[in-house]
């Protein structure tokens, strides 16, 4: 910050004290303009600073954190064992198949006399596990395929992308259904794998697209002209600059994965052990009593919607924060 001061400036009649501080700052201006001494703020950090004040993000994050915490501590806070049937006596298949709310059971019970609130709370575990792992595996698979296609290009790119196109052309739930029904014994892992598989092409396509954009960008060209090795260009420049939209997509996909998981469980492709609660499976069982006891469907459906909304709000505000247009 100590470039020579313009002679014309130095010649000025200096009046000490008055506005001296300001003068000093101005005189310190280098020929190239001022650079302040504060450490740099990276784009990620800048995005985080913006996010932290964004009410949409905060709402989404609050919802998500609530449910995650709930899922973690579920077994300890659920008032009843989910397999116990304390309300069995209340179930009257002819007149009152679903016990209503009563002391000790604020939401009442289900058709087998189990406590509904406890099942809802514990059900969050399965649902979140399936959503998170399915998205995670889908993300990993998609990133691997997308990186291969985007970094190598040419025939490899064409081959990978045609496979992805074929996968995308099959309706996703149908694909998941097919994959899930291939499994010899359905479990929550068949759910996870089948949902992960339908997510792979989405991530792969997205990553490959932004990798291609990066590949022709000036800063990658600059790295090439510097003589940086190809591997370093891919992993230090192309991938980190392309991954942003993929991460955003992942938070949005989480919501979809939860809904898909619910749908597959609803269709009976989830964990065959009906004693372990899961929101989709609860929703499936509730349809039998939809006219007599709509609340049986309402609670798990509401939970699914709220969780999905939480992830979507987070994803959308993340997308906004990482958008290059908001950079200054």
């Amino acid at each position: 910050m100590s470039d020579p001061i313009d002679p014309a400036v130095a010649e000025d009649v200096r009046r000490p004290s008055y506005g001296q501080r300001r003068r000093d700052r101005i005189d310190a201006l280098a020929q190239a303009g001022a650079v302040d001494d504060t450490p740099g703020v990276s784009l990620i950090r800048g995005a985080w600073l913006r996010l932290r004040r964004n009410p949409v993000f905060l709402t989404g994050a609050a919802i998500t954190v609530c449910f995650v915490v709930l899922a973690i501590i579920a077994p300890w806070i659920a008032p009843w064992d989910v397999t116990a049937r304390p309300l069995l006596d209340e179930v009257r298949p002819q007149t009152n198949p679903v016990p209503g709310p009563q002391p000790g059971h604020p939401l009442g019970g289900d058709d087998r006399g189990r406590d509904l609130l406890s099942r809802l709370i514990v059900g969050s575990r399965q649902t979140l596990i399936v959503g998170v792992f399915a998205t995670l595996f889908g993300l990993i698979g998609g990133v691997i395929l997308g990186t291969i296609a985007g970094a190598i290009g040419g025939a490899v790119d064409s081959l990978v992308m045609r496979i992805v196109d074929v996968m995308l052309s099959i309706p996703s739930l149908l694909l998941a259904f097919t994959v899930a029904s291939l499994a010899r014994s359905p479990s929550q892992w068949t759910l996870i794998v089948s949902i992960a598989i339908i997510q792979i092409p989405i991530f792969a396509r997205l990553l490959r697209g932004s990798m291609l954009a990066q590949r022709s960008s000036d800063h990658v060209l600059a790295a090439r002209s510097l003589g940086v090795k190809k591997r370093a260009i891919v992993f230090r420049h192309m991938l980190p600059n392309s991954i942003g939209p993929v991460i955003v997509q992942a938070t949005l996909s989480l919501a979809v994965a939860i809904i898909d998981a619910a749908a597959l469980s609803f269709l009976g492709l989830g964990n065959p052990d009906q004693r372990q609660p899961e929101w989709g499976q609860m929703l499936g069982l509730a349809q039998r009593y939809i006219s007599e006891a709509p609340h049986l469907a309402f609670y798990p459906a509401g939970c699914i919607i709220v969780v999905a909304l939480g992830f979507t709000l987070m994803g959308e505000s993340l997308r906004e924060a990482l958008d290059p247009k908001t950079r200054r």
């Binding site: 784009l43 990620i44 000036d218 800063h219 060209l221 600059a222 980190p240 600059n241 950079r327």
Partner: peptide, 11 residues
């Protein structure tokens, strides 16, 4: 390069 911003890796 021509565009000084796009030719520098933002990260």
């Amino acid at each position: 390069f021509q565009d000084p911003l796009s030719s520098l890796d933002p990260r």
